[in-house]
Design a protein around this nucleic acid. Sequence first.
DNA 1: CTTTACCAAGCAAGCGCTTGGTTTGTAAAT
DNA 2: ATTTACAAACCAAGCGCTTGCTTGGTAAAG
Lengths: 199, 199
Amino acid sequence: MLKKLVSEGIITDPSSAKGRLIQAAARLFRDKGYERTTVRDLAAEVGILSGSLFHHFKNKERILRAVMEEAILLNTETMRAALAQALTPEDKVLALIKCELASILGDTGAAMTVLVFEWRSLNEDSQQHILGLRDIYETLWMDALKEAKEANLVVIDPFILRRLLTGALSWTVNWYEQDGKMDLDELARNALSLAVKSS
Amino acid sequence: MLKKLVSEGIITDPSSAKGRLIQAAARLFRDKGYERTTVRDLAAEVGILSGSLFHHFKNKERILRAVMEEAILLNTETMRAALAQALTPEDKVLALIKCELASILGDTGAAMTVLVFEWRSLNEDSQQHILGLRDIYETLWMDALKEAKEANLVVIDPFILRRLLTGALSWTVNWYEQDGKMDLDELARNALSLAVKSS
DNA sequence: CTTTACCAAGCAAGCGCTTGGTTTGTAAAT
DNA sequence: ATTTACAAACCAAGCGCTTGCTTGGTAAAG
């Protein structure tokens, strides 16, 4: 999945200098916040001087944008693949919940957290750009929830449900412990029980 | 409610210079973020020079702390008052949901948003201090949810449920429109339907 | 011999905060 | 009623530091 996207030029190779920079930026932006992270912090993390950053990105904000963009693109593809395996409407919703939790709590977690918490630091153009990518992602969700609604699995309006779910799932980053007693699948089932009536 | 807390010295009078400063800070911190808001922005908003801020607060971080502290104190009292009126376990949960939504989407919304999004900008001491105030607030929630669980209104573990709900409700600040077709009560009922089985 | 990736040095602007002094509000003393 | 005393609120100026970013040049790779 990742390899395919890299070879297609959609996502930067994580082993390249630029790719390592994006990953380091995701971690730093999550841990210290975008504003509190200096270009010197960023450069030190990948072993270069601060001025050299601007060979790869024209300014600091573009680094933030790249972090967010690659996270969305990767997770949209992951979700599409998972949906292809799911059969029933309930399976699809569960698959989406699992994917979203995995993206938030797994490898791309730093970038996803940045996507949620550092939105304001993007300029108008970048916000518009990322918003476009998010629309694709959100369409996958809405299609699945509408289908669940038609199957009477869901009582609330799908739009409202999606938004309440977005909050509930995003927030897990603030409390869920990867090594605790509850594994990701159980968390996903708990979240599903909020959304659907049966099961 | 507010008057009582002001007269008891728990909350700063919003019409005083310091009070207006706290309210302006809440708005600016929400709209631009804490780091992006300068002490000059802050001072201009209340019509003084930047240096004069430090007569009221010893540093910028203390302003952030005051914003958060007063929001929690006020909303804890509001919740306590609402709980006193609720009879059944389901009523209590609905009352808490309404209170939390009102605090996020109403007058104290700016401060509550800051509380969620600017946590990292507090120093260690302040985080500890605010955490203590949050514990009181959260205890009210946990008592109500445990009661609902015992009454078989709730299937999930109350701790997990509270955390999923926290996210779902906090997130409303990013999409709910005050003047849209759905009023706060209907939103609250939708949120309740996530949490409890009946109704 | 051109392109890519970096370094070395530093600039201009903006930041939080300090300092010393002036105004304003308040209340007791005359 | 006027004066005296004092603290609270604010101004004017600017210091020391950090910030994102630029510039001109070098090393290495193909």
